[in-house]
């Protein structure tokens, strides 16, 4: 079982959409994917076509057996777990993550966690093989936040693989181009690629679908494929 935690370095970096699209790419390339929403906003389901009225999720359940009834499957075959309405405690959160290990009924399933940006990554109990991807946008705030995070990461012992990935990159913006060039040449832990800014990611949620299904000829589609391929190569190490 491969666990991947995706988290925005701040709110609104487009993390949930990435989780949904990554799940879709992986599923399409034959990997069993389980997407788990750890964010109290509970909006991951919307990307998979879950109606907004449906608010039930794992946080509402009493025990893990109840949680098992909360899983959904979308038309592509992706299994996902919505968050629900309550705000769980830290222990409940970690309990769920641990319990997810039990879900490994199929060999080599991947579990993608959509983590909220306000909970620090150190609050989760992480293993050696886990991959944490922090999403950043190319702007000045993220620039500062990245340096802050890197300092923090340097201080603490962390055993997991940590990466930063640029989302919504628009190379025609001079600031974004310069910042990204700077990060690429100076920062460690940068993923060697980026997700292009694309209108279709916004539009696809309006279609209650993922970008991958809406615009197979977009570069965003390629970007997600690159991301998936890169992750596979990382897990193989």
């Amino acid at each position: 079982m491969q666990r991947i935690f995706l988290k925005g370095i701040k709110g609104g970096t487009g993390c949930t959409a990435i989780v949904a699209n990554l799940a879709c790419v992986l599923k399409k390339s034959g990997v069993h994917v389980i997407a788990v929403d750890l964010d109290p906003k509970s909006d991951l389901g919307l990307h998979f076509g879950l109606p907004w009225k449906n608010t039930q999720g794992w946080s509402d359940a009493e025990n893990f057996n109840d949680i098992l009834t909360c899983f959904y499957q979308d038309s592509d075959g992706i299994i996902f777990l919505p968050h629900g309405e309550k705000t769980p405690s830290n222990t409940a959160l970690n309990e769920l993550i641990d319990n997810c290990n039990k879900l490994d009924n199929v060999q080599n399933a991947w579990v993608l966690f959509d983590c909220p940006s306000h909970i620090d990554i150190s609050n989760y109990t992480l293993h050696k093989d886990d991959i944490v991807i922090e999403l950043v946008n190319c702007d000045a705030v993220c620039h500062s936040l990245i340096y802050r995070r890197l300092q923090k990461l340097k201080k603490t012992e962390n055993s997991w693989h940590h990466f930063f990935l640029v989302n919504r990159y628009n190379s025609s913006s001079e600031l974004e181009f310069d910042l990204f060039s700077l990060w690429q040449s100076t920062l460690p832990l940068m993923a060697p690629f980026f997700i292009n800014s694309d209108e279709v990611i916004k539009e696809s949620t309006a279609y209650r679908n993922v970008a991958l299904n809406c615009a197979p000829y977009s570069i965003a589609n390629d970007d997600f494929e690159t991301l998936a391929g890169w992750l596979v190569s990382k897990t193989a190490l």
């Binding site: 292009n196 694309d198 209108e199 279709v200 000829y217 977009s218 570069i219 965003a220 390629d222």
Partner: peptide
């Protein structure tokens, strides 16, 4: 290569 149209869509 890629293009980004005026409406924000991208194409391979």
């Amino acid at each position: 290569a890629g293009i980004r149209l005026a409406n924000g869509h991208t194409l391979k």
